[in-house]
Design a protein around this nucleic acid. Structure first.
Length: 453
RNA sequence: GGGGAUGUGGGGUAACCUGGCAAGCCUGCGGGCUUUGGGAGCCCGAGAUCCCGGUUCAAAUCCGGGCAUCCCCA
Protein backbone atom coordinates (compact mmCIF):
# COMPACT_ATOMS: atom_id res chain seq x y z
CA UNK A 1 0.00 0.00 0.00
CA UNK A 2 1.27 3.49 -0.75
CA UNK A 3 2.81 5.59 1.97
CA UNK A 4 0.28 8.43 2.01
CA UNK A 5 -2.68 6.08 2.32
CA UNK A 6 -0.97 4.32 5.20
CA UNK A 7 -0.51 7.55 7.11
CA UNK A 8 -4.13 8.42 6.49
CA UNK A 9 -5.81 5.15 7.37
CA UNK A 10 -3.42 4.44 10.19
CA UNK A 11 -4.41 7.75 11.74
CA UNK A 12 -0.73 8.50 12.31
CA UNK A 13 -0.38 12.13 11.28
CA UNK A 14 -2.38 15.00 9.89
CA UNK A 15 -0.46 16.63 7.11
CA UNK A 16 -2.78 19.60 6.75
CA UNK A 17 -1.00 21.81 9.23
CA UNK A 18 -0.54 25.03 7.27
CA UNK A 19 3.24 25.44 7.53
CA UNK A 20 5.52 23.72 5.07
CA UNK A 21 7.33 20.74 6.48
CA UNK A 22 5.47 20.78 9.79
CA UNK A 23 2.88 18.15 10.58
CA UNK A 24 0.62 17.10 13.40
CA UNK A 25 1.26 13.68 14.90
CA UNK A 26 -2.03 12.20 16.03
CA UNK A 27 -2.54 10.05 19.12
CA UNK A 28 -2.10 6.69 17.43
CA UNK A 29 1.18 7.86 15.90
CA UNK A 30 2.28 9.46 19.13
CA UNK A 31 1.60 6.29 21.10
CA UNK A 32 3.94 4.45 18.77
CA UNK A 33 6.52 7.19 19.15
CA UNK A 34 6.36 7.03 22.94
CA UNK A 35 7.00 3.31 22.75
CA UNK A 36 9.91 3.89 20.38
CA UNK A 37 11.44 6.39 22.76
CA UNK A 38 11.05 3.96 25.60
CA UNK A 39 12.80 1.14 23.77
CA UNK A 40 15.79 3.31 22.89
CA UNK A 41 15.97 5.09 26.22
CA UNK A 42 15.98 1.81 28.12
CA UNK A 43 18.91 0.61 26.05
CA UNK A 44 20.77 3.88 26.41
CA UNK A 45 20.30 3.91 30.15
CA UNK A 46 21.48 0.34 30.34
CA UNK A 47 24.62 1.65 28.63
CA UNK A 48 24.88 4.24 31.43
CA UNK A 49 23.58 7.22 29.57
CA UNK A 50 21.69 9.76 31.65
CA UNK A 51 18.80 11.91 30.46
CA UNK A 52 19.26 15.64 30.09
CA UNK A 53 17.36 18.61 28.75
CA UNK A 54 18.83 21.44 26.75
CA UNK A 55 17.17 24.59 25.45
CA UNK A 56 15.81 24.64 21.93
CA UNK A 57 17.61 27.86 21.08
CA UNK A 58 21.30 28.31 20.52
CA UNK A 59 23.08 31.68 20.50
CA UNK A 60 24.48 32.49 17.09
CA UNK A 61 28.00 32.83 18.43
CA UNK A 62 28.00 29.30 19.76
CA UNK A 63 26.76 27.89 16.50
CA UNK A 64 29.58 29.67 14.67
CA UNK A 65 32.41 28.33 16.78
CA UNK A 66 33.16 25.15 14.88
CA UNK A 67 33.67 26.42 11.35
CA UNK A 68 32.87 23.34 9.35
CA UNK A 69 29.82 22.60 11.47
CA UNK A 70 28.51 26.13 10.95
CA UNK A 71 29.06 25.94 7.23
CA UNK A 72 27.12 22.71 7.12
CA UNK A 73 24.11 24.04 8.97
CA UNK A 74 24.07 27.76 8.27
CA UNK A 75 21.75 27.41 5.30
CA UNK A 76 19.21 25.30 7.09
CA UNK A 77 18.61 26.86 10.46
CA UNK A 78 15.65 28.93 11.53
CA UNK A 79 16.87 32.23 12.86
CA UNK A 80 15.34 34.13 15.70
CA UNK A 81 16.07 37.76 14.97
CA UNK A 82 13.17 39.47 16.62
CA UNK A 83 11.50 39.06 19.99
CA UNK A 84 8.35 40.94 20.76
CA UNK A 85 8.88 44.36 19.21
CA UNK A 86 12.63 44.29 19.55
CA UNK A 87 15.14 43.38 16.91
CA UNK A 88 17.66 41.18 18.68
CA UNK A 89 21.28 42.29 18.74
CA UNK A 90 22.42 38.79 19.58
CA UNK A 91 20.51 36.39 17.44
CA UNK A 92 19.52 32.85 18.16
CA UNK A 93 18.83 29.80 16.07
CA UNK A 94 16.39 27.01 16.68
CA UNK A 95 18.68 24.04 17.22
CA UNK A 96 19.21 21.91 14.12
CA UNK A 97 21.24 19.52 16.30
CA UNK A 98 22.59 20.18 19.76
CA UNK A 99 26.39 19.99 19.71
CA UNK A 100 26.83 23.72 19.96
CA UNK A 101 24.20 24.02 22.67
CA UNK A 102 25.66 21.31 24.84
CA UNK A 103 29.42 21.62 24.50
CA UNK A 104 29.83 25.04 26.07
CA UNK A 105 28.29 23.48 29.18
CA UNK A 106 30.56 20.44 28.93
CA UNK A 107 33.44 22.85 28.99
CA UNK A 108 32.20 24.05 32.38
CA UNK A 109 31.43 20.61 33.75
CA UNK A 110 34.42 18.57 32.67
CA UNK A 111 37.59 19.28 34.64
CA UNK A 112 39.24 16.06 35.66
CA UNK A 113 39.69 12.50 34.49
CA UNK A 114 37.28 11.68 37.29
CA UNK A 115 34.50 13.47 35.40
CA UNK A 116 34.79 11.14 32.45
CA UNK A 117 33.15 9.62 30.64
CA UNK A 118 30.16 11.90 30.26
CA UNK A 119 27.26 10.14 28.58
CA UNK A 120 24.03 12.08 28.27
CA UNK A 121 21.07 11.69 26.00
CA UNK A 122 18.54 14.23 24.90
CA UNK A 123 15.09 13.21 23.68
CA UNK A 124 13.61 16.09 21.83
CA UNK A 125 12.86 18.11 18.78
CA UNK A 126 15.10 19.78 16.26
CA UNK A 127 14.34 22.13 13.40
CA UNK A 128 15.94 22.34 10.00
CA UNK A 129 14.90 24.59 7.19
CA UNK A 130 14.72 21.92 4.51
CA UNK A 131 14.28 23.42 1.10
CA UNK A 132 14.07 20.16 -0.77
CA UNK A 133 10.65 18.57 -1.07
CA UNK A 134 9.45 17.61 2.37
CA UNK A 135 7.72 14.35 3.08
CA UNK A 136 5.68 13.51 6.19
CA UNK A 137 7.94 11.92 8.84
CA UNK A 138 10.66 11.27 6.26
CA UNK A 139 11.88 14.79 5.70
CA UNK A 140 10.32 17.56 7.74
CA UNK A 141 11.39 20.92 9.04
CA UNK A 142 10.72 19.71 12.54
CA UNK A 143 11.44 16.24 13.79
CA UNK A 144 11.72 14.16 16.90
CA UNK A 145 14.87 12.32 17.73
CA UNK A 146 17.26 11.23 20.41
CA UNK A 147 20.80 12.51 20.43
CA UNK A 148 23.51 11.31 22.76
CA UNK A 149 26.56 13.39 23.48
CA UNK A 150 29.44 11.51 24.97
CA UNK A 151 32.89 12.65 26.04
CA UNK A 152 35.82 10.31 26.68
CA UNK A 153 39.40 10.66 27.76
CA UNK A 154 40.82 9.25 24.55
CA UNK A 155 40.14 7.97 21.09
CA UNK A 156 40.02 4.34 22.09
CA UNK A 157 37.15 4.82 24.52
CA UNK A 158 35.30 6.95 22.04
CA UNK A 159 35.56 4.30 19.36
CA UNK A 160 34.32 1.65 21.72
CA UNK A 161 31.24 3.77 22.26
CA UNK A 162 30.53 3.87 18.55
CA UNK A 163 30.31 0.10 18.54
CA UNK A 164 27.97 0.25 21.50
CA UNK A 165 25.78 2.77 19.71
CA UNK A 166 25.51 0.48 16.76
CA UNK A 167 24.76 -2.44 19.02
CA UNK A 168 21.92 -0.50 20.62
CA UNK A 169 20.54 0.30 17.20
CA UNK A 170 20.76 -3.33 16.29
CA UNK A 171 19.02 -4.47 19.48
CA UNK A 172 16.10 -2.17 18.95
CA UNK A 173 15.74 -1.67 15.22
CA UNK A 174 16.46 -5.18 14.06
CA UNK A 175 15.36 -7.28 17.02
CA UNK A 176 12.40 -5.36 18.35
CA UNK A 177 11.17 -3.44 15.33
CA UNK A 178 11.96 -6.09 12.73
CA UNK A 179 13.48 -3.63 10.32
CA UNK A 180 16.33 -4.77 8.12
CA UNK A 181 19.19 -2.32 7.68
CA UNK A 182 22.82 -1.89 6.82
CA UNK A 183 25.49 -0.19 8.92
CA UNK A 184 27.92 1.93 6.99
CA UNK A 185 30.92 4.04 7.37
CA UNK A 186 30.04 7.00 5.19
CA UNK A 187 32.44 8.12 2.47
CA UNK A 188 34.59 11.13 3.29
CA UNK A 189 32.45 13.40 1.15
CA UNK A 190 29.35 12.51 3.12
CA UNK A 191 30.44 13.17 6.70
CA UNK A 192 28.49 15.05 9.35
CA UNK A 193 29.60 18.67 9.41
CA UNK A 194 32.44 18.83 11.91
CA UNK A 195 32.91 15.09 12.37
CA UNK A 196 36.04 13.03 11.80
CA UNK A 197 34.05 10.00 10.76
CA UNK A 198 30.38 9.28 10.30
CA UNK A 199 28.69 5.93 10.69
CA UNK A 200 25.10 5.45 9.69
CA UNK A 201 22.24 3.05 9.51
CA UNK A 202 20.17 2.86 6.35
CA UNK A 203 17.04 0.94 5.63
CA UNK A 204 15.40 0.43 2.25
CA UNK A 205 11.85 1.61 1.74
CA UNK A 206 9.45 -0.19 -0.60
CA UNK A 207 9.73 2.60 -3.15
CA UNK A 208 13.38 1.69 -3.69
CA UNK A 209 14.99 4.57 -1.81
CA UNK A 210 17.16 4.15 1.25
CA UNK A 211 16.42 6.12 4.38
CA UNK A 212 19.04 7.03 6.95
CA UNK A 213 17.47 6.30 10.33
CA UNK A 214 20.40 6.67 12.72
CA UNK A 215 23.93 8.02 12.71
CA UNK A 216 26.81 8.01 15.07
CA UNK A 217 29.73 10.34 14.66
CA UNK A 218 33.26 10.29 15.88
CA UNK A 219 34.00 13.93 16.51
CA UNK A 220 37.57 13.47 17.64
CA UNK A 221 38.85 16.59 19.34
CA UNK A 222 37.31 18.93 16.79
CA UNK A 223 34.61 20.31 19.03
CA UNK A 224 36.61 19.94 22.22
CA UNK A 225 39.20 22.33 20.82
CA UNK A 226 36.79 25.09 19.86
CA UNK A 227 34.56 24.68 22.89
CA UNK A 228 37.54 24.22 25.16
CA UNK A 229 36.52 20.92 26.73
CA UNK A 230 39.64 19.89 28.60
CA UNK A 231 40.42 17.67 31.53
CA UNK A 232 43.47 16.92 33.62
CA UNK A 233 44.51 13.30 33.39
CA UNK A 234 46.04 11.13 36.10
CA UNK A 235 49.49 12.37 35.21
CA UNK A 236 48.40 15.98 35.54
CA UNK A 237 48.46 16.60 31.80
CA UNK A 238 45.77 18.79 30.33
CA UNK A 239 44.00 17.02 27.47
CA UNK A 240 41.07 17.48 25.16
CA UNK A 241 38.21 15.03 25.38
CA UNK A 242 37.29 12.79 22.46
CA UNK A 243 33.64 12.96 21.63
CA UNK A 244 30.94 10.94 19.98
CA UNK A 245 27.33 11.70 19.28
CA UNK A 246 24.57 9.37 18.24
CA UNK A 247 21.38 10.48 16.57
CA UNK A 248 18.31 8.28 16.37
CA UNK A 249 15.68 9.53 13.96
CA UNK A 250 12.42 8.70 15.65
CA UNK A 251 10.20 10.15 12.93
CA UNK A 252 12.04 8.28 10.24
CA UNK A 253 11.94 5.02 12.13
CA UNK A 254 8.19 5.46 12.47
CA UNK A 255 7.95 6.10 8.74
CA UNK A 256 9.99 2.99 7.99
CA UNK A 257 7.89 0.87 10.35
CA UNK A 258 4.68 1.93 8.73
CA UNK A 259 5.84 1.71 5.18
CA UNK A 260 7.96 -1.44 5.24
CA UNK A 261 5.73 -3.71 7.25
CA UNK A 262 2.44 -2.74 5.61
CA UNK A 263 0.39 -4.98 3.35
CA UNK A 264 -2.65 -4.42 1.10
CA UNK A 265 -4.95 -4.07 4.09
CA UNK A 266 -2.94 -1.52 6.01
CA UNK A 267 -0.45 -1.29 8.84
CA UNK A 268 1.21 -4.20 10.57
CA UNK A 269 2.98 -3.27 13.77
CA UNK A 270 5.57 -5.17 15.77
CA UNK A 271 4.26 -5.98 19.22
CA UNK A 272 7.08 -4.05 20.88
CA UNK A 273 5.64 -0.70 19.83
CA UNK A 274 2.01 -1.37 18.86
CA UNK A 275 -0.15 1.05 20.86
CA UNK A 276 -2.45 -1.86 21.52
CA UNK A 277 -1.00 -5.34 21.41
CA UNK A 278 -4.47 -6.81 21.51
CA UNK A 279 -7.93 -5.41 21.03
CA UNK A 280 -10.93 -7.12 22.55
CA UNK A 281 -13.93 -7.22 20.26
CA UNK A 282 -17.11 -8.29 22.03
CA UNK A 283 -19.94 -9.93 20.18
CA UNK A 284 -23.35 -9.68 21.76
CA UNK A 285 -24.08 -8.99 25.38
CA UNK A 286 -20.96 -10.22 27.18
CA UNK A 287 -19.79 -7.12 29.07
CA UNK A 288 -19.12 -8.86 32.32
CA UNK A 289 -16.98 -11.56 30.77
CA UNK A 290 -15.15 -8.96 28.67
CA UNK A 291 -14.13 -7.13 31.82
CA UNK A 292 -12.95 -10.36 33.32
CA UNK A 293 -10.81 -11.07 30.27
CA UNK A 294 -9.46 -7.53 30.31
CA UNK A 295 -8.42 -7.84 33.93
CA UNK A 296 -6.65 -11.10 33.28
CA UNK A 297 -4.43 -9.62 30.57
CA UNK A 298 -4.25 -5.88 31.14
CA UNK A 299 -1.30 -5.84 33.51
CA UNK A 300 0.85 -7.84 31.16
CA UNK A 301 -0.18 -6.50 27.75
CA UNK A 302 -1.41 -3.28 26.24
CA UNK A 303 -5.08 -4.14 25.76
CA UNK A 304 -7.94 -2.11 24.42
CA UNK A 305 -11.64 -2.96 24.52
CA UNK A 306 -13.56 -1.87 21.46
CA UNK A 307 -17.00 -1.52 22.94
CA UNK A 308 -18.28 1.00 20.43
CA UNK A 309 -22.02 0.55 19.98
CA UNK A 310 -23.75 -0.01 16.72
CA UNK A 311 -20.66 -1.07 14.81
CA UNK A 312 -20.68 -4.62 13.60
CA UNK A 313 -17.90 -6.95 14.69
CA UNK A 314 -16.80 -7.37 11.09
CA UNK A 315 -16.32 -3.66 10.80
CA UNK A 316 -14.24 -3.63 13.97
CA UNK A 317 -12.06 -6.47 12.76
CA UNK A 318 -11.32 -4.57 9.62
CA UNK A 319 -10.78 -1.31 11.47
CA UNK A 320 -8.11 -2.76 13.77
CA UNK A 321 -6.49 -4.74 10.99
CA UNK A 322 -5.94 -1.50 9.12
CA UNK A 323 -4.32 -0.04 12.20
CA UNK A 324 -1.94 -2.96 12.49
CA UNK A 325 -2.99 -4.41 15.83
CA UNK A 326 -1.19 -7.76 16.25
CA UNK A 327 -4.01 -9.67 17.94
CA UNK A 328 -7.76 -9.41 18.08
CA UNK A 329 -9.47 -11.14 20.97
CA UNK A 330 -12.99 -12.13 20.03
CA UNK A 331 -15.40 -12.71 22.83
CA UNK A 332 -18.95 -13.88 22.36
CA UNK A 333 -21.37 -16.30 23.89
CA UNK A 334 -19.32 -19.34 22.96
CA UNK A 335 -16.21 -18.02 24.72
CA UNK A 336 -18.15 -16.88 27.73
CA UNK A 337 -19.83 -20.26 28.19
CA UNK A 338 -16.55 -22.13 27.91
CA UNK A 339 -14.25 -19.69 29.72
CA UNK A 340 -12.15 -19.26 26.58
CA UNK A 341 -11.13 -16.48 24.22
CA UNK A 342 -10.71 -16.54 20.48
CA UNK A 343 -7.45 -15.21 19.13
CA UNK A 344 -7.38 -13.83 15.63
CA UNK A 345 -4.00 -12.62 14.44
CA UNK A 346 -3.28 -9.88 11.96
CA UNK A 347 -1.99 -12.54 9.60
CA UNK A 348 -5.30 -14.38 9.68
CA UNK A 349 -4.70 -17.22 12.09
CA UNK A 350 -7.59 -18.06 14.40
CA UNK A 351 -7.49 -20.13 17.56
CA UNK A 352 -9.62 -20.58 20.63
CA UNK A 353 -7.64 -20.79 23.87
CA UNK A 354 -8.41 -20.96 27.57
CA UNK A 355 -8.79 -17.73 29.44
CA UNK A 356 -5.50 -16.91 31.13
CA UNK A 357 -3.31 -18.64 28.60
CA UNK A 358 -0.38 -16.47 27.55
CA UNK A 359 -0.60 -14.31 24.46
CA UNK A 360 3.19 -14.28 23.99
CA UNK A 361 3.11 -16.99 21.38
CA UNK A 362 0.79 -14.99 19.17
CA UNK A 363 2.72 -11.78 19.56
CA UNK A 364 5.89 -13.63 18.63
CA UNK A 365 4.14 -15.09 15.65
CA UNK A 366 3.04 -11.61 14.61
CA UNK A 367 6.58 -10.31 14.87
CA UNK A 368 8.05 -13.24 13.03
CA UNK A 369 5.74 -12.55 10.12
CA UNK A 370 7.25 -9.09 9.87
CA UNK A 371 10.77 -10.24 9.17
CA UNK A 372 11.92 -9.09 5.80
CA UNK A 373 15.13 -8.67 3.89
CA UNK A 374 16.21 -5.73 1.83
CA UNK A 375 16.91 -6.23 -1.84
CA UNK A 376 20.67 -6.16 -2.22
CA UNK A 377 22.37 -7.39 -5.38
CA UNK A 378 25.94 -7.59 -6.59
CA UNK A 379 26.87 -5.29 -9.43
CA UNK A 380 29.77 -6.35 -11.61
CA UNK A 381 29.55 -3.36 -13.89
CA UNK A 382 28.17 0.12 -14.02
CA UNK A 383 25.29 -1.23 -16.15
CA UNK A 384 24.41 -3.66 -13.38
CA UNK A 385 24.06 -0.75 -10.97
CA UNK A 386 21.48 0.81 -13.26
CA UNK A 387 19.51 -2.39 -13.49
CA UNK A 388 19.53 -2.93 -9.74
CA UNK A 389 18.43 0.61 -9.01
CA UNK A 390 15.73 0.22 -11.63
CA UNK A 391 14.08 -2.57 -9.66
CA UNK A 392 14.36 -0.67 -6.40
CA UNK A 393 17.32 -2.45 -4.90
CA UNK A 394 20.66 -1.62 -3.37
CA UNK A 395 23.72 -2.35 -5.49
CA UNK A 396 26.83 -3.83 -3.92
CA UNK A 397 29.94 -3.16 -5.94
CA UNK A 398 33.72 -2.93 -5.86
CA UNK A 399 34.78 0.71 -5.83
CA UNK A 400 38.08 2.52 -5.88
CA UNK A 401 37.90 4.42 -2.61
CA UNK A 402 35.56 6.04 -0.12
CA UNK A 403 38.32 8.49 0.77
CA UNK A 404 38.58 11.79 -1.00
CA UNK A 405 40.51 10.36 -3.94
CA UNK A 406 37.40 8.36 -4.85
CA UNK A 407 35.08 11.31 -4.90
CA UNK A 408 35.41 12.08 -8.61
CA UNK A 409 34.21 8.58 -9.46
CA UNK A 410 31.36 8.90 -7.02
CA UNK A 411 30.33 12.05 -8.92
CA UNK A 412 29.97 9.96 -12.05
CA UNK A 413 27.61 7.59 -10.31
CA UNK A 414 25.66 10.44 -8.83
CA UNK A 415 25.23 12.08 -12.19
CA UNK A 416 24.40 8.95 -14.09
CA UNK A 417 21.92 7.42 -11.66
CA UNK A 418 21.02 10.18 -9.20
CA UNK A 419 22.17 7.69 -6.60
CA UNK A 420 24.53 7.82 -3.66
CA UNK A 421 27.38 5.72 -2.39
CA UNK A 422 26.21 4.93 1.08
CA UNK A 423 29.55 3.67 2.32
CA UNK A 424 31.28 0.49 3.40
CA UNK A 425 29.82 -2.06 5.78
CA UNK A 426 31.15 -1.87 9.30
CA UNK A 427 29.34 -4.87 10.72
CA UNK A 428 31.12 -7.09 8.24
CA UNK A 429 34.58 -7.06 6.73
CA UNK A 430 34.14 -7.17 2.98
CA UNK A 431 37.11 -7.58 0.66
CA UNK A 432 36.66 -6.26 -2.85
CA UNK A 433 37.51 -8.44 -5.80
CA UNK A 434 38.68 -7.00 -9.07
CA UNK A 435 38.33 -3.52 -10.37
CA UNK A 436 36.36 -0.46 -9.45
CA UNK A 437 33.20 -0.46 -11.58
CA UNK A 438 33.64 3.23 -12.37
CA UNK A 439 37.34 3.93 -12.72
CA UNK A 440 38.69 0.51 -13.59
CA UNK A 441 41.34 0.98 -10.91
CA UNK A 442 42.00 -1.68 -8.36
CA UNK A 443 39.06 -1.55 -5.98
CA UNK A 444 39.85 -0.84 -2.35
CA UNK A 445 36.33 -0.97 -1.01
CA UNK A 446 33.04 -2.77 -1.40
CA UNK A 447 30.41 -0.06 -1.47
CA UNK A 448 26.64 0.05 -1.53
CA UNK A 449 24.89 2.26 -4.02
CA UNK A 450 21.27 3.32 -3.72
CA UNK A 451 18.82 6.08 -4.36
CA UNK A 452 18.20 7.99 -1.20
CA UNK A 453 15.74 10.22 0.58
C1' G B 1 18.14 27.36 -6.06
C1' G B 2 15.44 26.74 -11.29
C1' G B 3 11.15 24.90 -13.96
C1' G B 4 6.26 22.67 -14.34
C1' A B 5 1.51 21.13 -12.43
C1' U B 6 -2.28 21.33 -8.86
C1' G B 7 -5.61 23.43 -4.79
C1' U B 8 -13.77 21.75 -4.44
C1' G B 9 -17.10 18.95 2.70
C1' G B 10 -12.61 14.72 7.10
C1' G B 11 -10.59 11.48 2.66
C1' G B 12 -11.18 10.46 -2.78
C1' U B 13 -13.38 13.05 -6.78
C1' A B 14 -17.33 15.61 -10.78
C1' A B 15 -18.26 20.39 -12.80
C1' C B 16 -13.17 24.37 -14.82
C1' C B 17 -10.98 24.16 -21.19
C1' U B 18 -16.19 27.04 -23.40
C1' G B 19 -18.14 32.00 -16.63
C1' G B 20 -24.76 31.40 -15.56
C1' C B 21 -29.40 25.31 -12.64
C1' A B 22 -29.98 24.10 -5.72
C1' A B 23 -21.78 22.65 -6.72
C1' G B 24 -23.03 16.08 -8.18
C1' C B 25 -20.99 11.19 -6.70
C1' C B 26 -18.23 7.52 -3.45
C1' U B 27 -16.37 7.13 1.35
C1' G B 28 -16.01 8.85 6.25
C1' C B 29 -18.85 11.48 10.33
C1' G B 30 -23.68 12.35 13.63
C1' G B 31 -28.89 10.57 14.72
C1' G B 32 -32.93 6.80 14.24
C1' C B 33 -34.85 1.91 13.08
C1' U B 34 -33.26 -2.91 12.08
C1' U B 35 -28.92 -5.75 13.04
C1' U B 36 -24.33 -8.28 15.32
C1' G B 37 -19.19 -14.94 14.78
C1' G B 38 -14.90 -11.05 9.30
C1' G B 39 -16.09 -4.66 5.77
C1' A B 40 -24.70 -5.29 6.94
C1' G B 41 -29.35 -2.62 5.30
C1' C B 42 -32.90 1.43 5.12
C1' C B 43 -34.21 6.53 6.50
C1' C B 44 -32.66 11.37 8.21
C1' G B 45 -28.73 14.99 9.09
C1' A B 46 -24.14 18.06 9.41
C1' G B 47 -20.11 19.24 6.28
C1' A B 48 -16.58 22.25 0.67
C1' U B 49 -15.01 25.84 -4.03
C1' C B 50 -7.15 27.70 -0.08
C1' C B 51 -6.43 33.27 1.06
C1' C B 52 -6.32 38.47 -0.83
C1' G B 53 -7.32 41.47 -4.91
C1' G B 54 -8.98 42.26 -10.16
C1' U B 55 -12.24 41.53 -14.70
C1' U B 56 -17.68 40.77 -15.27
C1' C B 57 -24.63 41.86 -14.80
C1' A B 58 -22.58 37.14 -12.95
C1' A B 59 -16.41 33.66 -10.89
C1' A B 60 -15.14 27.01 -8.32
C1' U B 61 -14.40 28.33 -13.58
C1' C B 62 -10.79 33.99 -16.45
C1' C B 63 -6.39 37.37 -14.63
C1' G B 64 -2.59 38.94 -10.69
C1' G B 65 -0.34 38.13 -5.97
C1' G B 66 0.19 35.13 -1.53
C1' C B 67 0.12 30.41 0.90
C1' A B 68 0.20 25.15 0.48
C1' U B 69 0.90 20.42 -2.06
C1' C B 70 2.99 17.22 -5.88
C1' C B 71 6.52 16.27 -9.92
C1' C B 72 11.04 17.26 -12.70
C1' C B 73 15.92 19.54 -12.84
C1' A B 74 20.40 21.63 -10.00
Amino acid sequence: MDYDSLLELGDIVDIRYPAKGFIVIKPYGMMIIKNLYKLFEEQLEKDRHLPIHFPAIIPENNLRLEGEHFKGFEGEVFWITKAGLNELQDKYVLRPTSETAIYPMYSLWIKSWRDLPVKYYLSGTVWRYETKATRPLIRGREFLWIETHDAFPDQEHARTQINKDLEIANNVIKDRLKLDFLMFRRPDWDRFAGAVETYAIDTLLPDGKVLQIATTHYLGENFAKVFNIKYVDRDENEKYVHQTCFGIGINRILAALIYIHADEIGLRLPSSIAPYQAVIIPIGDVDEYVNKVYNVYANKYRIHIDNRDGITPGNKFYYWDKKGVPIKIIIGKIEKDNNTIEISTRSGKKERIDLGESLDKYLELNDKDLDYKMKIYDAKSIEDVGKILEIGGIARAPFYSIYKEGEEYYREIKEKFKAEIRGVRIDKDEKPEGQCIVSGRKAEHVVYIAKQY
